[in-house]
Each structure stands twice: as structure tokens, then as C-alpha cells.
Nucleic acid binder design. Structure first.
Length: 417
RNA sequence: GGAGAGGUGGCAGAGUGGUCGAAUGCGGCAGACUCGAAAUCUGUUGUUGGAUUUACUUUCAACCGAGGGUUCGAAUCCCUCCCUCUCCGCCA
């Protein structure tokens, strides 16, 4: 969501962003409605002024004023009805207004325009044909698929035995690192009101991908970002308290609508998973928020480097990065069995987008003015997806799986899964 | 699930139909005193939108959980929803 004033003054910039991000939004129509809205608002304000004046006179038993007041009342009501209609239309369109992407972002309508910006870690040369993580899970009795699917539906699974322990170890490992980096840790709920999802920008676009609890008018979140972003809703923060660094651990739910046939088996794409999300609230300052962005990205790299998993970083193109994003980079881990990289992390700077929707502001010390904060987020770690990369990269010829050294302290120095 | 109480400015807390955007206290900010600090004293202290202006300058409107209603006029009365608290019941 953008500032309407910015849209009025820079319609062409907005139109370009709309086009590059492949968004269905008629900017000219939005501006037309904006004008109409202003007119109605002015009219109502004038009537309200009159109403207030008349009320004072009525206290002095002015009968004429009372007659006029009744007329004004009707006029206000009529105009308010017109206002409400236009406002709804306006809000709907405003929710679709995109953040203007950074100049670093490649322009293109889909993922095919993404660019690899970094590769790290040596890809292991196997002297045997690496097995898929699905095979390895089976050999080592580390997961249950079919029996669980019968009970819970497609794209569900259970981690078993030492893999279940490894998952827990990963959480400890991730939390330790983020805590040392100054993050406030939250173990969070995943049930929210729709308001929170509009706040992050997941709604309206992601409604189809979100589990609903209609009886309670609530939804299951697909990321802890939703709750973390909502924590400071409607607040005016002190500049001195920024940046705020939150790490949230929560179950995540995604319907994966429209992804039929994609990564059906295994640990890659499931309906319910666990994730630690990094979330930062910072000043409305390009330099500062870029600094925080690099911080978030570095944290992820550090984690993966400690786990010794080869990865690459992708700069997402305009069409692949979502309405609200200024800049987004995915971190992808190497999967030996398929000789490809799979997305395990996604780092985003949303500028004011979420702050506007959620009304999170701060008072700037220098000017004493109230400004919208910038919000940023990046995956800390998500399972089971990352487990696929760990298992495959750490496999041996006989199908045994080594445990990354960084995790062993959390597993009583266990060496093999 | 049943019964009751309540949601007001950064916080605490008054206000139950008419200059109430809201008393008071705390906190914050500025100043005085001080070598400096504390204490004390003085002043100041919400957001959003419109118009106006050299200037947050002046002015108007809106906002007291959210949305509706009654009234010339609502923080105050009525309805719905959300949230919080207390007691009872149930329960991981």
C-alpha cells in the first residue's frame, strides 16, 4: 500500500510498478475515485460545520435552527452513504497498490527473470549416485508418509526417531544463534483474525492459499511474520527503540492451492511445517533498512555455513516478488539427488507497505514527526524442507546419514542419524 | 459452556446527553534553581484529514475497543461484534 499523495504526484511511477509486478490495478481509476472521495469528504465537512453551529443555537431555543438542523442531518446521512461506497472501492484498490521496487531488482513478469547473485559452499563430489531424501528416509526409518496421509490428507507426514530429534536440535541451534544476535524470541500462536493477514499483505491475494476457521472468523497463518507484524499495530514507537528484532517460532499452514503435482512427495512442500522467522522493524530510512536487510541475509548465510550446506542466493524479479516488496532474495540449498537448488529462505524488505496497513509508526527524533516504520523479514529456518538438503548432502554410500557437526552438541554428540 | 464487571490520551484514572479532545496524577519535553545531578517550582505535552500559511502558523472536521442506531447534539443512551478481568463448570 502506498501513500495516496505519492500516487497523485507520481502516477507514472506507480503505473510502471503495477506493470512490472503484473498487478491488476487501474491507477487512473484509482485517482478518479480519490478525487470523488475528496469532494464528498469536503461536502460532509462543510455540513458538519453547519451542524455544529446549529447545535449551539438550539441550546438558545432557536426554533429555526432546529428545522435547518434536521435538514442538514438528512444531507449528511445521504452523503455518508455515498462516501462509504466509494471508500470501500477505494480501499480495495489501495490494498493492491505496490511498493515501488528497488532499482537492483531485475524487471520481468515471472521467476524466469530471477538472477543468481551468489553461490557459496563447495558442492560435494559423490563417488556414488546420491540417493533422494525420500529413499534415505525410507532406508533409515526416519519418516512416515502413507499412514499419516490416510489420516491427515495429502502433503502431510511425520518425522520419526532421530530425525524427530534432529528437528528439535535445529530449533535450539537456530534460536541460540538468533538470541546471540539480539533477537527477542517468541514462540507464537498461528491462529489470527483476517485483519492481521491484511496487515502483512497476504490478504487479499493469498486468501485461497490460507486455511480458514469460519466458525471463529479466524485463519491459520502461513508464517510467524503475520503475528510479529501485528504486535505493534496502531502504535507510535520511539525512534530510540528501533530497530526491533523479533524471531518467531510457529507452526505454519499453507493450502498450496494451485501447486498440484509439484513436489508431491517428500519433505519439500507440505501443508503444515515449522518455522523460525526473523522480523525487523526499523526506521524509515533507505540506508538503515538496507543495513537491516543485509543483516537478515547474513544471519541466514551464517546458519547455512555452520550447517555446511551449499547454497545460492537469487535476486527475485519484479514479477516474482509480490505486491508489497521493495526487494526480495531467496536463499536456495543444494539438493544433490536432483542437482538443483531448492528455496529454503526468503528475505524481503517491504518498506512502509506493511507499516501502512498495520499502522505502525514512530516519532523521528530529529523532526519530532510521526513516520511509518519499515518492516523486513527473512526465514530463520524452516523444517521439514531444510531437512531434505541436510539429509541428501550428508549421506554416505550405504545410505547412512551423518549429523552436521554444529548440531551434535544438541544431540548428545550423536554422529549418525 | 454458565453468571457478572469492564474496555477513555505513553501509563494510571475521572467523566453517565451540550464549548469534553476530554479533569487529575505519573511519565515525557522545555525552562528556573544547581559546579553538575536529584528534589522542588514554572510552562508544555495525541493522531488523522481539509483549508490557509514563510512557519504545525491559523482554522475547521473526525477520532474515547470496532461497526450500526436514537438525538438538533453521544465518551456518555440502545443494538451487534471483538477483547480483557472475576466467579463457576469442563479440560491439555
Amino acid at each position: 500500500m502506498l501513500d495516496i499523495k505519492f500516487i497523485r504526484e507520481n502516477p507514472d511511477v506507480v503505473k510502471t510498478a503495477v506493470k512490472n509486478k503484473n498487478i491488476k490495478l487501474d491507477v487512473d481509476l484509482l485517482l478518479k475515485i480519490d478525487m470523488e472521495l475528496l469532494n464528498v469528504k469536503n461536502l460532509i465537512q462543510n455540513l458538519s460545520e453547519e451542524k455544529n453551529r446549529l447545535s449551539l443555537e438550539i441550546r438558545n431555543n432557536n426554533e429555526e435552527a432546529k428545522t435547518r438542523a434536521l435538514e442538514v442531518k438528512v444531507l449528511i446521512k445521504e452523503n455518508e452513504e455515498a462516501l462509504k461506497e466509494k471508500e470501500q472501492e477505494f480501499k480495495k484498490m489501495m490494498l493492491l497498490t505496490p511498493t515501488i521496487p528497488s532499482e537492483e531488482v531485475p524487471i520481468g513478469i515471472d521467476a524466469s527473470f530471477n538472477v543468481v547473485t551468489k553461490k557459496f559452499g563447495e558442492i560435494r563430489k559423490f563417488d556414488f549416485k546420491p540417493k533422494s531424501h525420500i529413499e534415505l528416509l525410507d532406508i533409515n526409518d526416519l519418516a512416515e508418509f502413507n499412514k499419516i496421509t490416510k489420516i491427515c490428507g495429502s502433503r502431510t507426514l511425520a518425522l520419526k526417531n532421530n530425525l524427530a530429534r534432529l528437528e528439535m536440535a535445529l530449533w535450539q541451534f537456530t534460536y541460540d544463534i538468533l538470541f546471540e544476535k539480539g533477537f527477542t524470541l517468541f514462540n507464537l500462536p498461528s491462529v489470527v483474525f483476517e485483519e492481521a493477514l491484511y496487515g502483512t499483505g497476504h490478504f487479499p491475494n493469498e486468501i485461497e492459499n490460507t486455511y480458514a476457521l469460519p466458525k471463529d472468523k479466524q485463519y491459520l497463518t502461513g508464517t510467524a511474520e503475520v503475528v510479529l507484524n501485528g504486535i505493534h499495530k496502531d502504535e507510535i514507537l520511539n525512534e530510540d527503540d528501533l530497530p526491533i528484532k523479533y524471531a518467531g517460532f510457529s507452526p505454519c499452514f499453507r493450502r498450496e492451492a494451485g501447486s498440484y503435482g509439484k513436489d508431491i512427495k517428500g519433505l519439500i512442500r507440505v501443508h503444515q511445517f515449522m518455522k523460525v522467522e526473523q522480523f525487523i522493524i526499523t526506521k524509515n530510512d533507505l540506508e538503515e533498512s538496507e543495513k537491516m536487510y543485509q543483516f537478515l541475509l547474513n544471519n541466514t548465510e551464517e546458519l547455512l555455513q555452520k550447517l555446511k550446506i551449499p547454497y545460492q542466493i537469487i535476486m527475485c524479479s519484479t514479477g516474482d516478488m509480490g505486491v508489497g516488496k521493495y526487494k526480495m532474495q531467496d536463499v536456495e540449498c543444494y539438493l544433490p539427488s536432483e542437482n538443483r537448488y531448492i528455496e529454503t529462505h526468503s528475505c524481503s524488505n517491504l518498506h512502509e507497505f506493511q507499516a501502512r496497513r498495520t499502522n505502525i509508526r514512530y516519532r523521528e527524533n530529529k523532526t519530532n514527526k510521526v513516520k511509518f516504520v519499515h518492516t523486513l523479514n527473512n526465514t530463520g529456518l524452516a523444517t521439514p524442507r531444510i531437512l531434505a538438503a541436510i539429509i541428501e548432502n550428508y549421506q554416505e554410500r550405504d545410505g547412512k546419514i551423518k549429523i552436521p557437526e554444529a548440531l551434535r552438541p544438541y544431540l548428545r554428540n550423536l554422529e549418525w542419524l
